[in-house]
Nucleic acid binder design. Structure first.
Length: 781
DNA sequence: GGCCGGGGCATTTTT
DNA sequence: TGCCCCGGCC
């Protein structure tokens, strides 16, 4: 440990060593926050805490994975693996599964992602004959999500005057009913959405003190990363768990709180002291990332925010260049200026394309930079877009997986009841849904026993439904007997998806085939990882539990080619680049027009720019355009007010801005749904009488899975090599090249027909099993 | 079921 | 200006 401490500066050391009571570590940008967190955990382990007594929460899978790896390198893999480390959602979904019976769920509940819940809301709105122009699914979803994050159940919502009146004012009085219906439907279907995972955890702890007490005993030390991004539900879970021992350390930076629109509440960190009396604050103020000019410029900007914890972030790196402010006539020209600068800088210095990032406020801005870079032959990559698990073909397969585990899952049923086409169209589905609502049962119950619920369909349809039911039952049955890999295969084959997707070699199908292959590789990798950890039988449930909470946010590690990066500022949090371009610094774009309603949101926009600037290690440039195509129209754009917020000492201003003051001193109007709207019900949450949910007796042992699925490739490459057709010349000893795994030697061949697989010893990645049906590789000799 | 065209729309998106 | 969704049509 001694030698580790030498890696830390004074304030980092203090933060690591103080563990007697609650502490808050304010970690300025680039101040070595992760290092403190990892060393602190290592230190706790050394001071006698068992790994399974430490709970360490992060917001992203990626952060959890990285921290786990770093801790493993200090204390060893097996110890690190026993830590309770993961995202809020993954850790508490594990806890919910173990205690599901207390909440009227089974441990097999499935998880709705954002699009599932939106789709359910859509159908509810339709069923209620409401106008979806007024009850926009997305807005309704946001309102419900906010309510859940504030721990307001439908019952509580209905009696909450503020909320009900606010909805009435907005001419949407029925939101409370939609919420109630949505809630009931999720229960019937045995599913939870992302927000439910946190809300039900709170309900579990509130209504079952014995459970809370048990976890208080287990989690003897709690650490939370990125605390500025916690919402009320998360805050309360932590508060409940740490009550008593108060061994809690939260790390964060209020200046980097940029997710309030997702429910994050900056006051959680600002007011931490009142929640944890005696809380010690440590400030990590030395920035190791950026030049002095960049740090000072960023400081001068964030200084304009009222709501913040004051700190003195400083750098002892070189003074560095001033921040360039680039003024363009048009968005078009802005693209060219940036592209030109990239090539100039690359030519004049030793920079690689990887050293550059273009950060924008909205995804729509990327186009123009793409064009400009392409014209100059500058390679680039764009982050954001459809994640792997959101691709249609993947969602389809996963819907079947979900049904094998939880056939009541409504959205999964809707998705695949007629995919591949089996003659159960919208009309029939509509009847099934109606019948389910009428009898207060799940769709699956109607499908399983249509006669019992007098489903009004003809015999032909009844037959088709029967077939579908048998199919799903086959999967359920198989799921009880087979491991993840085998059942995944079975599902893909028996559902008809295989036939569908491998029917022809159209480009779309080829891409689907690749994605399907990728999914199988993902399961494969998941299984082999788990096997390495000594788990023999890997159930599909475990895989599903993992990927339901996986997003594709992780960066593309296997693409190490030299490219300029483009992404939104939000996506850039936590990353660093030598050279940063922050583009589109214009009023109504950055700050966004909608954020000008309130000072709060404006401050968040300012923090967003702070985050953007502090990504830079060596150079930073801010650009704006005087005109920009917006909604088809060329629009005059005044420069962003934020340009005035930065101390000009650290800027190279264009002469134009120096002379005339066209940054308007605008009058903002404050309005509408302020952040306080949910506050009235919050504090009383733990006292409120809630209808106790019916409980079912079912107890499952805690499954010990460690979430770490290696990232799947989300990018469509167009290379295709047919391994699925002919396998002549493929024998033990043959040398093959695989798209992903590189080259290797075939060491064994096994299985028959569709099950035929080969074992390959790859040079880079070691031994892998490949299903011939799916594997794409070429035989080299 | 798939294709086409019109209309509405257009912040950010850790799980 | 583009994109996405829906409705109408084959």
């Amino acid at each position: 440990m001694e030698e580790f401490l030498q890696d830390l500066n004074e304030s980092q050391q203090q933060a690591v060593l103080y563990n007697e009571g609650p502490s808050l570590v304010i970690a300025g940008a680039g101040s070595g926050k992760t290092r403190v967190l990892t060393y602190k955990i290592a230190f706790l382990l050394e001071s006698g805490y068992a790994p399974y007594n430490i709970l360490a929460l992060t917001f992203t899978n990626k952060a959890a994975r990285e921290m786990k790896e770093r801790i493993a390198s200090i204390v060893g893999g097996p110890t690190a693996a026993r830590l309770w480390m993961g995202t809020f959602h993954s850790i508490f979904s594990r806890i919910l599964r173990v205690n599901a019976d207390r909440l009227g769920f089974t441990s097999d509940f499935t998880i709705y992602d954002t699009s599932d819940s939106r789709s359910l809301l859509k159908s509810i709105i339709k069923e209620k004959d409401l106008d979806d122009k007024i009850y926009k699914p997305a807005s309704v979803q946001a309102i419900i999500s906010n309510a859940k994050n504030a721990l307001i159940t439908p019952q509580a919502y209905q009696v909450n005057k503020d909320l009900v009146e606010s909805d009435e004012r907005a001419k949407r009085p029925l939101i409370k009913d939609i919420y109630q219906t949505y809630w009931n439907r999720c229960q019937k279907a045995g599913v939870m959405d992302f927000d439910d995972l946190l809300l039900y955890t709170n309900i579990l702890f509130r209504d079952h003190p014995d459970v809370l007490e048990r976890y208080r005993q287990i989690f003897r030390f709690i650490l939370v990363d990125e605390y500025q991004d916690t919402n009320f539900a998360q805050h309360l879970i932590i508060h409940q768990l740490s009550k008593g021992h108060n061994h809690i350390c939260v790390v964060g930076d209020d200046a980097q709180s940029i997710y309030s629109f997702r429910g994050a509440n900056i006051s959680n960190i600002l007011n931490l002291k009142s929640d944890y009396p005696g809380c010690k604050t440590f400030k990590l103020e030395r920035n190791y990332r950026s030049t002095q000019n960049i740090v000072r410029a960023a400081n001068s900007l964030i200084d304009k925010n009222k709501e913040q914890i004051r700190k003195q972030v400083y750098s002892e790196n070189a003074v560095g260049n001033k921040i360039d402010v680039l003024s363009a006539y048009s968005d078009f020209e802005e693209g060219y200026m940036v592209a030109n600068r990239v090539s100039e800088m690359k030519r004049l210095s030793k920079y690689a394309y990887n050293d550059f990032v273009i950060l924008y406020r909205t995804n729509a801005q990327s186009r123009i930079f793409e064009e400009a870079l392409r014209k100059k032959n500058i390679p680039y990559r764009i982050y954001g877009g459809l994640s792997f698990y959101q691709r249609k073909e993947i969602k389809d397969v996963i819907a079947y997986f979900r049904l094998a585990i939880n056939p009541h899952d409504e959205e999964a049923i809707k998705r695949v009841i007629n995919y591949p086409a089996r003659g159960i169209g919208d009309t029939t589905l509509g009847k099934i849904i109606e019948c389910g609502i009428h009898n207060d049962v799940s769709l699956w119950q109607v499908i399983a026993t249509p006669l019992e619920y007098t489903l009004p369909v003809n015999n032909g349809t009844l037959n088709k439904i029967q077939k579908f039911k048998e199919l799903i039952e086959e999967f359920i049955d198989a799921n009880n007997k087979m491991n993840a890999m085998d059942i995944a295969e079975l599902i893909i084959r028996r559902s008809g998806i295989f036939t569908e997707i491998y029917a022809n070699r159209s480009p779309e199908n080829l891409s689907r085939q690749e994605n399907l292959q990728e999914l199988m590789n993902g399961i494969q990798e998941f299984c082999s990882l788990r096997q390495e950890e000594g788990v023999e039988e890997i159930a599909l449930t475990d895989f599903l539990a993992e990927i339901s909470l996986a997003t594709d946010q992780d960066e593309k590690e296997d693409d190490d080619s030299d490219k300029v990066t483009m992404m939104t500022i939000h996506a850039s949090k936590g990353l660093e680049f030598k050279n940063v371009f922050v583009v589109g610094l214009e009023e109504d774009l950055f700050p966004a027009a909608l954020s000008k309603n309130s000072e709060r949101e404006l401050e968040e926009e300012r923090r967003l720019l702070y985050v953007a600037i502090t990504r830079a290690e060596e150079n930073c440039a801010l650009s704006y355009a005087a005109t920009r195509y917006r909604n088809g129209q060329p629009t005059a754009m005044p420069p962003s007010r934020f340009l005035k917020d930065i101390d000009p000492t650290y800027l190279n201003m264009p002469s134009e801005l120096k002379s005339k003051q066209n940054v308007e001193d605008s009058i903002y109007s404050f309005s509408s749904r302020s952040l306080g709207m949910y506050s009235s019900s919050r504090s009383s949450f733990f006292k409120r009488e809630e209808p106790v949910l019916p409980s079912k007796k079912q107890d499952l042992p805690l499954k010990s899975y460690s979430p770490r699925l290696k990232r799947l490739d989300a990018v469509n490459t167009s290379s295709v090599s047919g391994g699925s057709v002919s396998i002549t010349g493929l024998d033990v000893g043959a040398r093959i090249r695989h798209d992903r795994f590189g080259s290797g030697i075939v060491t064994e061949i096994s299985g028959e027909g569709d099950n035929r697989k080969i074992g390959v010893e790859f040079e880079q990645v070691g031994k892998k099993q490949l299903l011939l049906k799916f594997a794409k590789f070429t035989i080299i000799k």
